[in-house]
Simulated assay, not measured.
Amino acid sequence: MTVQENSIALTGRRVVVTGGASGMGAGLVRAFPKLGANVVSMDVVEDAGAAIAKDAGAQFVACDVSEPESVKSALGQSVSLLGGLDVLIHAAGTAPGGAAEDITFATWSEVMSINATGTFLTNQAAFEHLKASGGQILNFASAAGVQGLPNKAAYSASKGAVVAWTRTVAREWARYDITVNAIAPAIWTPMYDKTRASMTPEQLAAHDAFMASAVPLGGKLGDVDEHFVPVLAFLSSIGARFITGQVFPIDGGTLMMR
């Protein structure tokens, strides 16, 4: 294997993925072992998470990312299973909708505790295992956290916090050789299928017309395996070790960062 090939390989990389029981997190749990990585999936949904991990040749640890002790314990257990840690991918999240004026305190608190506080807790826990020898952290941001998204005010606010946190700790933790980046994905998942199924034929037609103009590449959300996994694989490889504090849209050109 050449130096260039080795720099983007995942062979032997020790990776923890949160939110591994569904959506994009599950896609990574299924894909990364095939690319040579050793993977532990963490999720609050135990049955589905454990089944997906087992089928993929990964391991599973139950975790509630909004609870400090759960995160600390689960990360410690995961690192023990892996024999160390190279990469944390924090994919766990929630995205309820609704008009801003109608958001309840309970909904606001839940979204913030999972998306924003979950990022804070998992990143801090990973830091303790990475500070001696360096490593990589990948957080899940969103276009909503950069430019806002109507009817997703709490979600947008939480993802704005993820962006600000990521850029700040990227500066602070660089001296430990820890890189911290975020992605802003627009990927087709089972959750999106449910959203589409809840629309009337008229709403679906309007939505698809909007997507056709909003996504320059293809006019629709991307595919997990074709469009999403390859980018995450690179960002989890040692070839990405000179990149930090960035937000990478994986969205067909919808959000053009600058």
Results as ranks from 00 to 15, higher is better:
residue 250 I to W: 02
residue 22 S to D: 07
residue 65 V to L: 09
residue 205 A to V: 02
residue 73 S to Q: 05
residue 154 A to V: 12
residue 112 M to L: 15
residue 142 S to I: 09
residue 248 F to Y: 02
residue 203 Q to L: 04
residue 257 M to W: 12
residue 17 V to Y: 00
residue 180 V to Y: 01
residue 117 T to S: 08
residue 19 G to S: 05
residue 167 R to I: 05
residue 112 M to C: 11
residue 203 Q to R: 06
residue 85 L to R: 08
residue 68 P to Y: 13
residue 242 F to E: 04
residue 204 L to W: 07
residue 231 V to R: 05
residue 226 E to Q: 12
residue 149 L to D: 00
residue 40 V to P: 02
residue 11 T to R: 15
residue 143 A to T: 07
residue 186 A to L: 14
residue 187 I to Q: 04
residue 253 G to L: 02
residue 213 S to P: 02
residue 146 V to R: 03
residue 209 A to T: 11
residue 121 L to Q: 00
residue 109 S to L: 04
residue 136 Q to D: 03
residue 53 A to S: 15
residue 166 T to M: 11
residue 208 D to Y: 12
residue 33 P to R: 06
residue 4 Q to C: 08
residue 21 A to M: 00
residue 207 H to G: 00
residue 243 I to Q: 05
residue 15 V to T: 12
residue 94 T to F: 03
residue 102 D to P: 00
residue 215 V to Q: 03
residue 254 T to I: 01
residue 142 S to L: 09
residue 41 S to D: 04
residue 62 A to I: 12
residue 73 S to F: 04
residue 111 V to N: 00
residue 81 L to G: 08
residue 2 T to V: 14
residue 162 V to M: 08
residue 254 T to W: 03
residue 178 I to F: 08
residue 149 L to C: 02
residue 81 L to P: 06
residue 75 L to N: 07
residue 91 A to T: 06
residue 180 V to D: 01
residue 10 L to R: 01
residue 6 N to S: 15
residue 4 Q to V: 06
residue 194 K to A: 15
residue 112 M to Y: 10
residue 244 T to Q: 00
residue 228 F to P: 02
residue 244 T to K: 00
residue 38 N to D: 09
residue 97 G to S: 03
residue 226 E to G: 10
residue 222 G to T: 06
residue 14 R to S: 07
residue 119 T to R: 01
residue 81 L to H: 13
residue 109 S to V: 04
residue 256 M to S: 06
residue 87 V to L: 08
residue 9 A to E: 10
residue 62 A to L: 13
residue 177 D to G: 09
residue 2 T to S: 15
residue 50 A to K: 15
residue 239 G to C: 04
residue 91 A to V: 05
residue 14 R to H: 14
residue 138 L to P: 00
residue 178 I to N: 00
residue 57 G to F: 08
residue 176 Y to P: 06
residue 59 Q to C: 10
residue 245 G to K: 01
residue 177 D to I: 03
residue 230 P to K: 05
residue 202 E to K: 13
residue 12 G to H: 11
residue 219 G to D: 12
residue 10 L to C: 09
residue 256 M to V: 11
residue 139 N to Q: 06
residue 196 R to W: 08
residue 213 S to A: 12
residue 246 Q to A: 06
residue 67 E to N: 15
residue 129 H to C: 10
residue 196 R to N: 10
residue 115 N to I: 02
residue 49 G to P: 01
residue 177 D to R: 14
residue 244 T to P: 01
residue 248 F to W: 00
residue 256 M to H: 05
residue 42 M to P: 00
residue 128 E to G: 13
residue 7 S to F: 10
residue 94 T to I: 10
residue 109 S to K: 10
residue 131 K to A: 12
residue 148 G to L: 10
residue 152 K to A: 07
residue 104 T to Q: 03
residue 80 S to H: 15
residue 238 I to W: 01
residue 175 R to P: 08
residue 26 A to S: 13
residue 227 H to M: 09
